[in-house]
Design a protein around this nucleic acid. Structure first.
Lengths: 100, 100
DNA sequence: TTGATAGGCAAGTATCGACTTGCCTAATAT
DNA sequence: ATATTAGGCAAGTCGATACTTGCCTATCAA
């Protein structure tokens, strides 16, 4: 459970995929592949991306739906909530301007 | 930067250490060692724990202060904020009771 | 000073995980 | 029917990393 989540986040390529899905949810495998290649200069094979997506799906960060021969990938950030629930983060830390 | 954070969170032992520091911040290496051993049945060497703490410190999740021959470890959850800033999480997802 | 306590450094092992290559299935197009 | 497009499965390689063992330094107590 939590193990899958943190393992999924551990890889920089997977985090970039999450970025891409944040920008545009519901992309296909090939769409993600070409975006990683063009926008992020990531030379990675299609299977590589596919395996990353599988890890993200196991973590619950990505959900998929099939339509014909296409498989669309949707982002689900809900699992991230358990991180800040497990280790509470102060509202605003750091040197804040004194409330005027 | 972000890489260090997610790498630090990727290991289950390190997450348990964060749990321990959440419960009681400012523990020494030996204190953490014995807690991992007794409370979590983690048979890990002192050096193992020390290396984990170093990774957590690199990520900014743990800060240390020395006093004499003792080194105290304090939790700092602030770096976690960038996670939910990078991938925004809806306030409360899932089937919520309708606000009465 | 001697011994005990708290921690650090470095090298070695061994497992895990990212990535690739090669082949296979299913849906659309000509 | 054949070719093309979208994706899946499996084995193999290679580098990263968690963990250990062995030795070394520094602080405090007797």
């Amino acid at each position: 459970m939590a193990d899958d989540l943190f393992k999924a986040l551990a890889d920089p390529t997977r985090r970039t995929i999450l970025d891409e899905l944040t920008e545009k949810s519901g992309q296909t495998l090939f769409e993600i592949c070409s975006r990683l290649s063009t926008k992020h200069q990531l030379g990675i094979s299609r299977q590589g991306v596919s395996q990353h997506l599988a890890v993200l799906e196991t973590a619950g960060l990505v959900e998929t739906r099939r339509e014909g021969r296409c498989k669309f990938h949707d982002l689900n950030t809900a699992p991230l909530r358990q991180i800040t629930e497990r280790w509470p983060v102060p509202d605003t830390s750091g040197p804040e301007e004194s409330t005027p």
